[in-house]
């Protein structure tokens, strides 16, 4: 086994020399005041039994697909079709997606990590639910759950297996821990059987889960027919 779940990848490895965020502090920057107010109210209402977590999850799940991951799928499909774009994306994702109009509202940075023949990337937020929502919409409920947050780090291969994703033994699995300052998006491998496909055809293969890294992109031509 060559699993190497490194929660915090060194920045040097991801060409982020321009980023100045600090990973070593021994506290966590609180979210904005308005997010704290929502958390405060929600936690009080839950404790008092006035609302149930399941009910809230169900309501949010109903709507989470509405925002949806189509922005992220656009970015991935473009990276699959346009090599210079892909290189720019991997070097400076924040600026590159901003050129497409996808700008985080709180100034958070984005890093895109590429799945290759040797590396499979998986994104988690061990802290809470930091998520590149300008690209992927609202985070799914499981992403916010304590088991996923813990197990994605301690046993990523097992978590992937539960999503139906079998990562070959020879592949390294890298786990990226999102923060309020840095969000990660997985660039899945382009599926086989998609030679000559247009960007919009490709886009249809890019699922939300594939950009979190718990699944692969949908298969190309052979299997689809």
């Amino acid at each position: 086994m060559t699993v190497s779940p490194s929660r915090k990848q060194p920045d040097a490895e991801s060409s982020l020399s321009t980023m100045s965020h600090e990973h070593d502090h021994d506290h966590t920057d609180p979210p904005s005041d308005i997010e704290l107010r929502v958390k405060a109210l929600e936690s009080l209402l839950l404790e008092k039994g006035l609302v149930k977590q399941d009910a809230l999850n169900a309501i949010i799940e109903t709507y989470e697909h509405q925002v949806g991951p189509k922005n992220g799928a656009h970015v991935v499909a473009k990276a699959w079709s346009d090599l210079p774009f892909k290189q720019a994306l991997l070097e400076n994702a924040t600026a590159t997606v901003a050129d497409l109009g996808y700008v985080g509202r709180q100034g958070e940075h984005l890093t895109v990590v590429e799945n290759t023949l040797d590396i499979h990337n998986l994104v988690v937020c061990t802290l809470c639910s930091c998520y590149p929502w300008t690209l992927l919409g609202l985070p799914p409920v499981w992403y916010k759950s304590a088991p996923y947050r813990a197990r994605a780090v301690s046993e990523p291969r097992a978590v992937l297996y539960e999503f139906g994703t079998v990562v070959p033994e020879h592949k390294d699995i890298r786990v990226w821990d999102s923060t309020s300052e840095m969000r990660y998006l997985v660039l899945p491998e382009r599926p086989a059987g998609t030679k000559g496909w247009s960007e919009s055809q490709l886009q249809a293969l890019v699922t939300r889960n594939s950009m979190i890294g718990v699944e692969l992109a949908r298969p190309g031509a052979e299997e689809v027919k």
């Binding site: 609180p30 061990t126 802290l127 947050r149 813990a150």
Partner: peptide
């Protein structure tokens, strides 16, 4: 909540 964030080492829930 604010204090909980400030008191939590980075990377922990």
């Amino acid at each position: 909540w604010r204090e909980a964030y400030l008191a939590t080492p980075h990377g922990q829930p």
